[in-house]
């Protein structure tokens, strides 16, 4: 990797991305266009998050990469290898140890702190895309805070199906101004964004947008007074660690086909299992 610059991208590019990131932080929820570069991983596989991570990372950082909550998922391994080899940082799977966590579609179960940054990989940054295909038009809608079509969509869901059908990519109102897409995290993770200690950065490489939710910012999922926002819930807990407050994934035994529920945050689940035998430091729950 010595043929390449520190953290892969050239310094001018990193500077540009940092400036765009600062702008994003200054205007919570606003999508800042940037000159997204082609990365040595495919478009749509986390190139936006990757560019944000590479532009903010330094040698003293400790990196964690998760994909769907899993540190050992093949894409997470691939990204972690690329980032750690080009930017010479230590890696961890422990949420508490990491200073930068890059994630796809999950927020870790353990509450993150002020010194940490969570970088999201975003496939579709435009929350209005489902109601309006044109970028020219959606930019106008954000500019005028013309969100009526989104509200109508939610209303029609309730009329036709009795509830809002959006499962992930749940629209949130940030700092009382812009509506934004929190990336395809499940509903379960959305409340963690509200008044958090941690800086949340969102990178969409293919769509060439960066946006941010700074610490201590109001983040409210769209809802109606008589149809409040709800999150996923389970009748049972994780079959590995016994946790009843985590987000679970359903899977089927490869031999007998039986259905099982396990934590999607594998690092958290692993620590929980160890905790039952020995002393291990667990992070706090996001909601106190």
């Amino acid at each position: 990797m010595s043929a390449y610059n520190y953290a892969f991208l050239d310094e001018n590019t990193k500077k540009e991305i940092r400036r765009k990131t600062l702008k994003a932080i200054a205007i919570p929820g606003y999508q800042v266009p940037f000159g997204s570069r082609e990365m040595p991983i495919a478009r749509g596989w986390g190139t936006g998050g990757l560019q944000v991570t590479l532009s903010v990372i330094g040698k003293q950082d400790i990196l964690k990469v998760i994909d769907q909550g899993n540190d050992d998922s093949v894409n997470a391994c691939n990204l972690r290898d690329l980032i750690s080899s080009t930017s010479e940082v230590a890696t961890t799977t422990d949420t508490l140890e990491a200073t930068i966590i890059q994630t796809r579609h999950r927020i870790p179960e353990e509450k993150m702190q002020a010194h940490q940054i969570l970088v999201f990989q975003v496939p579709m940054p435009e929350v209005l895309r489902t109601v309006e295909p044109s970028e020219q038009e959606t930019r106008r809608m954000h500019g005028e805070r013309d969100y009526s079509r989104l509200w109508v969509q939610l209303y029609e869901d309730i009329v036709q199906h009795g509830e809002i059908r959006i499962s992930y990519d749940y629209p949130v109102l940030v700092n009382g101004h812009y509506i934004c897409d929190p990336s395809p995290i499940p509903r379960f993770d959305v409340p963690k964004l509200h008044q958090a200690e941690t800086l949340f950065l969102f990178g969409a490489g293919r769509e060439k947008r960066i946006y941010a939710i700074p610490p201590h910012t109001d983040v409210v999922p769209l809802q109606f007074e008589d149809y409040p926002f709800t999150v996923e819930s389970y009748d049972q807990g994780c079959e590995k660690c016994g946790c009843t407050t985590s987000y679970l994934e359903e899977s089927f035994d490869r031999v007998d086909g039986a259905r099982h529920y396990y934590c999607s945050d594998t690092s958290f689940c692993g620590k929980k299992q160890v905790e039952q035998g020995e002393l291990v430091q667990m992070g706090a729950n996001w909601h106190g």
């Binding site: 769907q68 998922s73 894409n75 999950r106 499962s167 992930y168 999607s264």
Partner: peptide
């Protein structure tokens, strides 16, 4: 890529 989390939400 895995979409286990998203699909669970669906």
């Amino acid at each position: 890529l895995p979409h286990y989390v998203d699909f669970q939400a669906e």
